[in-house]
Simulated scan of single mutants.
Amino acid sequence: MSGWTSANIPDQTGRTFVVTGANSGLGAEAATALVGAGAEVILACRNTVKADAVAQRLGPKATVAKLDLADLASVRSFAESVTGADVLINNAGLMAVPLQRTADGFEMQIGTNHLGHFALTALLLPKISDRVVTVSSGLHQLGNLQLDDLNWEKRRYNRWRAYGDSKLANLMFGLELAHRLRDAGSSKQSFVAHPGYAATELQGRTETVMDFLMKLTNKTPMVQSAAAGAWPELYAATMPGLESGTYYGPTQFFGLHGAPGRNRYKKIADDASVRARLWEESEKLTGVTFDVASAG
């Protein structure tokens, strides 16, 4: 995989991908690369106006569907509309936003980044033939999941810790899904990826001075393009012969940029008991029973 870029994606003709948050940033770049490799791509987005512009640029292989991960009714409606796909890429996300609540009362970051994708994957998995890729972040290292307070109702809100929690939850969910699929004897796979430090619209929504500082940082050589940031999720989504449950990210400059490869992650993510508790709490909060065995 040394030097791997999106130009190395195998031919994807005849395959269908669902990419959440494909209206901009990593998602739009992933969709662009996949269509370029011959795939059909469903751009699952809250902002369908932006998504329509991306789809128009990509041509007839790209279609747009409404999906608001901060609203479980929208998640269910979208899942019902999908007839089938080969790969689901859980790409959409928010970073370090002020305290807000989703339509179902969840803290916005855990609700959008993790719980929305958890419910979506549960509902779509029977229709997915190959694999699921969930996008985490190197900032999952900031996470310290409080499983009795995922929605920050008891703690004083910290937007960066909440982001870290949501990305740690993404990582643990992807690893646990791989474990459960394997135990169920399923041929389906689950991977986790992170983009390193890539310049996207994700930076700029904290409503603090950090927005200005991050925009300045985005112009420095240490930050890679959104197209390069999408490489790890594209690698995990398209390459044959990968080991389910692997965490992929950039391999250069402390995991901030470069070609994708295996990355290390926070040790707590290997704790099967914590992963199981997160799974159970996610089922409870979303009201979605995630029975991997029955998903085929």
Rank of each mutant, 00 (worst) to 15 (best):
T20M: 03
A33C: 10
E40R: 14
V41Y: 00
R15D: 04
V35F: 06
A33Q: 01
V18M: 05
T32W: 08
A28R: 14
S24V: 13
G36F: 05
V18F: 01
R15Q: 15
R15S: 10
N23K: 08
E29H: 14
G21Y: 08
G21C: 07
T32D: 11
G21Q: 12
I42L: 09
A39I: 08
R15I: 14
G27A: 12
A30N: 06
V19L: 04
S24Y: 02
I42Q: 05
A39C: 12
E29K: 14
G21H: 07
E40T: 15
A22Y: 04
E40K: 14
C45V: 13
A31D: 06
F17N: 06
G36C: 10
L34M: 14
A30P: 06
L26R: 10
G27W: 05
E40W: 08
A44T: 00
A30D: 07
V41A: 01
S24W: 04
L26H: 04
C45P: 10
G25D: 03
I42Y: 06
R46N: 07
A22K: 12
T20D: 00
G25T: 12
A30S: 15
G25V: 02
R15N: 13
G27K: 02
A37S: 15
T32R: 15
F17M: 08
A31K: 09
A28Q: 14
R46P: 11
L43F: 02
L26C: 13
L43D: 01
A39R: 03
G27F: 06
F17Q: 12
S24A: 15
L34R: 11
G38V: 13
I42F: 04
G38T: 13
A31T: 10
T16S: 12
N23C: 13
G21N: 14
S24H: 10
G25W: 05
V41T: 01
G14M: 06
N23G: 07
A39W: 06
E40N: 15
G25N: 09
L34D: 07
G36Y: 04
T32C: 09
T32Q: 14
R15Y: 11
A37V: 11
E40H: 11
A22Q: 05
G38S: 05
A33Y: 07
E29A: 15
E40A: 14
